[in-house]
């Protein structure tokens, strides 16, 4: 069925544009005048002012690795994140934990863990797939580098960014 769109009957003032043009000019003039005295400006001067404190809890920034409260690397290098990563930004080189190590029971940990931030799309799949809850997307968003090599986060950087994550998995607790 055809829909009849009722065109509103315009008055002469509306038809000849002019009153609304003047109304518009008045509004923009008001804003111009206010901004001239540095009032009402809503933008933020980015590097000096940041919105970091207001980032939401679920914000997906740079992926990082975490250690637990005992200082143990949570990653067991199962490589699930490496396989699921859509842009293939993650490269893991696993290693066996030596016999005399405190965490021998865990058996494996990454020898190298690289995330190419030039490739990362911040999708958060690595965080979701991780069975050990070892990789988290933190709130860092300003990842810069002067070349491709600088954009690769190695294991050291990742742990530095990630820090300690308490609780959650007790799978490798000796007492359990």
């Amino acid at each position: 069925m055809a829909i009849v769109v009722n065109r509103p009957k315009l008055t002469f003032a509306e038809k000849c544009y002019l009153p609304s043009i003047f109304a518009g000019l008045a509004i923009t003039w008001k804003h111009l005048k206010r901004a001239l005295f540095n009032k009402g400006i809503v933008t933020m001067q980015y590097p000096e002012e940041k919105w970091d404190a207001n980032l939401p809890e679920w914000y997906r920034g740079a992926p990082t690795l975490v250690v637990d409260e005992n200082g143990r690397e949570k990653c067991v290098s199962c490589q699930l994140c490496e396989f699921i990563c859509p842009p293939r930004a993650i490269t893991i080189k696993p290693m066996e934990i030596p016999e005399n190590d405190k965490w021998r029971k865990v058996e494996k940990r990454p020898e190298e863990f690289d995330i190419d931030m030039a490739r990362c799309i911040y999708c958060g799949l690595c965080e979701e797939v991780c069975p050990e809850e070892a990789i988290f997307l933190r709130k860092d968003y300003s990842i810069t580098g002067l070349n491709r090599a600088e954009m690769v986060h190695d294991k050291k950087t990742l742990y530095k960014l990630g820090g300690v994550m308490k609780g959650l998995t007790f799978k490798w607790n000796e007492l359990k």
């Binding site: 804003h31 901004a35 001239l36 400006i41 933008t43």
Partner: peptide
Amino acid sequence: KVSAFIQDRT
């Protein structure tokens, strides 16, 4: 500048 001021920018 004027466009920025009108749009509440700097």
